[in-house]
Nucleic acid binder design. Structure first.
Lengths: 341, 341
DNA sequence: TTGTATGCGTTATCAT
DNA sequence: ATGATAACGCATACAA
């Protein structure tokens, strides 16, 4: 069938072990036989069968990527492709392959993960989210397979590798960005608090409100579970007796929905209400108006997670160094100084 | 190390071949021993090693996905994630895994492909683009490995499986959408004509212009190689003695850039100029104004390509049935009846 | 219906 | 510096 090292060995008049050593460029082999063997490989078109190598080495040099919720949702959000881009870049550099989960439900994704792990298809995994009551992380811990989570793990912080932003701080800064502009009534539109990131940003917002002695109304803080539900939240917020003059929104996609609702309500941004969002994706750049956004450096998030993972795979005994990626605010037209009407 | 079929066999008091047959649920094994073996598998936590199976079966049940240009570019365009979503859905259904190229240049991607193919890491590939002078497709033909291209192959149409839209027709329809609205001066902003899709749409546009006896000015048709360069094209177009009153733009991303330029030029859409774009992604839906867009059913493109590929993998002798996915126009606010100023 | 033996294409451990 | 050979974990042809 295929041409194997046996064929090469026979043709070159050496043993298969010698061929194998030539492949790995072992220093124990003389340059002369290396040349000879390589010439034969060229001649008969030999190529390594990675499956065979994987089997004997018990490793695949591929990393699995676990998506959140469902493949569809992940791919609809500009966040995931950008994370993937970062992961991909580092993996390519290290000559690792990438394998994706394909499930459309949490359960299906969990099955994907078990298959990857137990089928020994991956050397490690990147979990692209952090969520309460998630089965994946505990499972991976139990398996003892290297993995890193993007976001702050819900428990066992010290035993789990992770890369994250300081989301509490980032949300605090975002809120204070509006405070500095003179806003005193600031609303918060977050996300599903099952996800750690949503909770953290919500806490950061609350901290900023408290530290600046502003109105702490529970009415002002919303945690819709989807960008679609975010719309509802805006309607409610703007119907309040004293509606907010500024809004902190925890992702660009939701912010886009918000923008649409505001338009329907005939509220201009930033004239009537200021907005600051998170992630600084293409969306915030190209929306109308372009939105001030907290850049979470998504690409770096992905890149570093891959780096952590591959480091860990290569040396599992090394200490667990989690990494925090800094954030910064990209100011655009959606947030301006508050002026009394 | 791991628990293997040998362990299961010993514990269950059967031969390894019996265990293997239980795994594949062979009808030749009695229900009784099946139950016994499965119980043991459960007890000692047995799991199939896919690498070993891959090796002996000479197949991996995974499909490789080839990105265009570079991973980064692909992931910056909403097109690719959506294609991936479709591919992923069908692959999941068929229990196939997905492996992505990670290269950042055409050459690097070609290396990824050869590695996938020669390393026997995939059973087939989906090439997510069709391009002139591309090395990948000829290489895959030479290898004789199953593959399908998304887009119309540049040669050997009959020997290559592909799934595509009828881009000539779609562009013709798009152009005529503006014609019907009374526009007579219609510009075209396409993409890099190295890609077949760009050429096809350009031809469709020209055909519509010709058939409707409109002004055929070469000045009106532009083929910038990136959304960034599209901006330049708009400036030039609008500086013409007789600028167009309608614009056909072949992708949402470029259209977004165009919108921005138009705004800078103080030209309102659709009051001063109408726009129709392609792909109907989130971008056209959420842009301001929302844009009329030709829906190319990207998800279906991906889904069908996976279906074609896996069909072909399962039965390489079956006839090559390529598929054309229909398009339709989603009307939004960016295109309106032309009124003389 | 079940068992025996062999091979899939490598790498790795001993030798020499 | 190189060769012989035993794994790696599974599937399958052939026996029984």
């Amino acid at each position: 069938m295929s041409v194997t090292i046996k064929d090469v060995a026979k043709r070159a008049g050496v043993a298969t072990s010698t061929v194998s050593r030539v492949i790995s460029d072992s220093p124990k082999i003389s340059e002369k036989t290396k040349r000879k063997v390589r010439k034969v490989m060229e001649e008969i078109g030999y190529h390594l069968n990675e499956n065979a190598r994987n089997l004997v080495q018990q490793s695949t040099k591929t990393v699995g990527i676990v998506m959140k919720n469902s493949t569809s949702e992940s791919l609809h959000d500009p966040f995931f492709p950008e994370v993937l881009r970062g992961i991909s870049a580092y993996c390519h550099k290290q000559d690792y392959s990438i394998s994706l989960t394909t499930g459309e439900s949490e359960e299906a994704i969990f099955q994907d993960v078990t298959k990857m792990v137990q089928g020994k298809k991956v050397d490690g995994l990147i979990v692209s989210y952090s969520k309460k009551n998630d089965k994946v992380v505990p499972y991976l811990i139990e398996c003892g397979i290297p993995f890193v989570v993007i976001g702050k793990p819900v428990g066992q912080i010290n035993q789990i590798l992770y890369v994250d932003n300081d989301n509490i701080y980032a949300a605090k800064e975002a809120t204070e960005h509006l405070v500095k502009l003179g806003h005193e009534k600031i609303g918060f539109i977050g996300g599903n608090t099952e996800f750690e990131v949503a909770e953290a940003r919500s806490n950061g917002y609350k901290e900023a409100i408290r530290l600046n002695n502003l109105v702490v109304t529970e009415d002002y803080v919303r945690s819709p579970k989807s960008p679609e539900l975010a719309k509802q939240a805006v309607y409610e917020l703007m119907k309040l007796p004293v509606p907010p003059t500024g809004l902190v929104i925890t992702d660009d996609l939701s912010a886009l929905s918000v923008l649409l609702v505001l338009k329907k309500l005939n509220l201009d941004v930033p004239e009537n209400i200021s907005i600051i969002t998170f992630n600084n994706t293409m969306i915030s750049k190209f929306s109308s108006p372009p939105m001030t956004s907290v850049d979470t450096q998504i690409y770096q998030l992905g890149y570093e997670s891959a780096r952590c993972l591959i480091d860990e795979i290569k040396d599992p005994s090394s200490i667990k160094r989690s990494v925090i990626i800094p954030t910064f605010i990209e100011e655009r037209e959606s947030s301006v100084t508050y002026v009394q009407k």
